[in-house]
Simulated assay, not measured.
Amino acid sequence: MKLTIRKTIYTFLLLAVTLHAGLLWWSQRPVDIVAVHKNGSHSYVLVKNFPFLDKEKITWWLKNKAMLKEKYNIPNPEKDGFYSVIFWDFGEGYKETDGYDRLCFDDMTTNINCIDKEKYFTVWNGKNNNISFGVHDGEYFIKENGDMIKRKYE
């Protein structure tokens, strides 16, 4: 009986370590920026391997916002400071429009200029110069004291 319990514990430990190692590897993959499209103060960044957790997404933005400005000139704020940067899953790549639910980019001169709408993350700066981070179930705000709070969507 004791041998069976020991084998079960070792099996679960091995499974837990393997799962943890896989998640760690998956979370450390570099983000691949495939393309950037712009429409005024709105920027659309098509990516592969974007972080999964909210904290990782925000950390990635904070670490890479200078690179995005230098390399892609985003964000592109309006005079009052407003901008939005939306990160989309590039998924299976560009496709033709389905006439309904794909996001299409007018700055491309081909009919294959749309992607499936799988949004990862949104960053926007409001007119009162408050940066917000949109995730699938809510928004994060940075308070004046630097604390971050989340407001869940209802």
Rank of each mutant, 00 (worst) to 15 (best):
D89K: 15
V135H: 04
V123K: 05
T110H: 06
K38R: 15
W124L: 15
F141P: 13
T109C: 01
M1G: 06
L23T: 12
G126W: 08
T97M: 03
I115F: 11
Y153R: 00
P51W: 11
F52E: 15
D98V: 05
L53N: 09
C114D: 03
T122P: 08
A66N: 08
G138N: 04
K69T: 08
N49S: 14
F87V: 00
F121C: 02
H42K: 15
R6C: 07
V123H: 04
C114G: 03
C104E: 07
I131E: 00
G134W: 01
H42S: 15
T59Q: 06
L103H: 12
K119L: 04
K69Y: 13
N39D: 15
M67G: 02
V47N: 03
Y10W: 09
I74W: 14
K65S: 11
S132I: 11
T59R: 02
L13D: 11
K7H: 03
Y120W: 13
Y140R: 00
I9Y: 01
S41E: 12
D101L: 09
K55W: 05
A35V: 05
N73M: 10
L15Q: 01
K79R: 14
L3F: 13
K79Y: 10
W60L: 02
V31S: 13
V31E: 03
K117M: 14
G134L: 01
G91P: 03
D101K: 14
L46D: 03
N113I: 00
Y153N: 00
W124N: 15
Y140D: 02
D54P: 09
G126S: 13
Q28F: 14
D107T: 07
Q28G: 10
I5G: 07
K95C: 07
K7V: 07
R29G: 07
Y153D: 00
L3P: 00
L14I: 08
D32G: 12
I112G: 10
T122N: 07
V34D: 04
Y44W: 07
S27H: 14
G93L: 05
A35P: 08
